[in-house]
């Protein structure tokens, strides 16, 4: 089974990916207030992600949610640097998994509130 991860795309992120092929696949949600890049995740990769991050889960739409912000940020960086939304991007992320988990561990306790 294939799952998905939705990466939120604000203006800054859009600038980084606008010339990549998948930029045309961005979804506009809720009347255009939010754009999302939907990335397909195969079962093996999903299992690994769920194992690495115990609070993560599959939601009603089949999306992996409650992922650490650090993971999503690295995934976005990997998508930009590899120009891919496939395995290459995830391999790049998993290469830094310890670092991401360290950042995520702090993030599990504290994320600055919006001002």
């Amino acid at each position: 089974m294939t799952y998905k991860i939705g990466l939120l795309i604000d203006e800054k992120r859009y600038e980084a990916i606008k010339n990549l092929p998948f930029a045309t696949t961005l979804k506009s949600m809720f009347g255009g207030d939010i754009r999302v890049l939907e990335i397909e995740v195969d079962e093996e990769t999903s299992r690994r992600i769920l194992a690495e991050f115990p609070a993560a889960r599959v939601d009603a739409r089949g999306f992996l949610e409650d992922l650490p912000v650090a993971f999503k940020r690295e995934l976005f960086n990997a998508v930009v640097s590899t120009g891919s939304v496939g395995r290459e991007a995830f391999e790049k992320v998993f290469a830094k998994i310890d670092e991401i988990k360290q950042a995520a561990a702090k993030e599990k306790e504290y994320v600055p509130p919006p001002t």
């Binding site: 939705g6 939120l8 939010i34 889960r57 939601d59 009603a60 739409r61 999306f63 949610e65 409650d66 992922l67 999503k72």
Partner: peptide, 8 residues
């Protein structure tokens, strides 16, 4: 999805 919203 509530969890999508949590991500936002």
């Amino acid at each position: 999805s509530g969890s999508f919203l949590r991500g936002v």
